[in-house]
Design a protein around this nucleic acid. Structure first.
Ligand SMILES: [Mn+2]
Ligand SMILES: [Mn+2]
Ligand SMILES: [Zn+2]
Ligand SMILES: [Zn+2]
Lengths: 151, 151
DNA sequence: TTTAAGAATGGGAATCATTCTCATTTAATG
DNA sequence: CATTAAATGAGAATGATTCCCATTCTTAAA
């Protein structure tokens, strides 16, 4: 536990952010579970000791500092994950029955091809492409709920 | 114009949906512009003659009937596009300065590799992967607004 | 250590997109 | 045309996110 809060403090210091209880809590939590978490996940784990508005601000701050990254699940819920240097570029697989999110690396070969293709596409459209995302949606056999989907 | 409404009526009939003014309008519009449109785009073009709630329902109906498909831009705005049989599987490139969305086809080779990779990933995670999306984000030189992004 | 100044927080109001409700209108069918 | 189910319009309700402001922390200097 202390390990994780130390990690959090160090990270904040490194990025020139002030060390506050909500920020440390959020970072420790993300490190502890090492998986993308939603606003509600974090609120529940904090037993609602953090104000919702604070959580949004903390995430925005951490995101601007590139300490975390945010993205949306198919049901449009905001998800946050740590953005370590050692954490390599990766993509996500969403299971719509059990609502889990898995990190997926495409591998050098494919990622390389994609890079090449992207620069070609960028030229064609005269657009400087800075980012790409590749996401997969599926379901394990647990249920047929499709609970990650809106509609 | 008449061409487009005929197209719309035919499409609705083919899919067993009743022909109503809002549905015909939306489909004609999508065909006329042949580009993904947002809720606001459609409302403006309709000069607000369609109720907002109706538009949402119409899009849900058309989407369930697989006549259109919806997806979200990086700023989380809902976008709709026609889903013709002749329109092949494709992906999207978002320009964050001029807010345009471009259709992009990856090409057989890459799409084939991705399919193979996906089935491998599906096995690894014991998940039946039904869909994938590949999106690119960039900006042309028009402005540096990044207006498609939230934050 | 104390203190001052700015930064961050909590709580609640405001905003925005989307969904829901229900009374009224319309489409399809014979 | 009349009937009946389906669709619509208008606005209320909901849910997520942002905004506001008074209060509380953090930090760094004295
Ligand atoms: Mn991840
Ligand atoms: Mn498209
Ligand atoms: Zn699952
Ligand atoms: Zn552009």
């Amino acid at each position: 536990m202390a390990m994780n809060t130390d990690y959090a403090r160090t990270l904040l210091k490194q990025h020139g952010l002030t060390i506050t209880e909500p920020r440390v809590f959020v970072l420790s939590l993300l490190r502890k579970f090492d998986t993308p978490m939603s606003i509600n996940d974090i609120m529940e784990k904090s037993k609602h000791t953090i104000a919702l508005s604070t959580l949004y601000r903390v995430l925005a701050d951490l995101s601007h500092a590139k300490i975390v990254t945010t993205f949306s699940s198919p049901n449009q819920k905001l998800l946050v994950e740590l953005l370590d240097e050692e954490r390599e570029h990766h993509h996500h697989l969403y299971c719509e029955s059990c609502e889990k999110v898995f990190d997926v690396s495409l591998g050098e070969e494919l990622e390389g091809m994609i890079e090449k293709l992207i620069s070609k596409i960028g030229e064609t459209h005269q657009i400087d492409i800075q980012e790409h995302s590749f996401e997969m949606y599926g379901s394990c056999n647990n249920t047929g709920q499709h609970s990650l989907r809106r509609n």
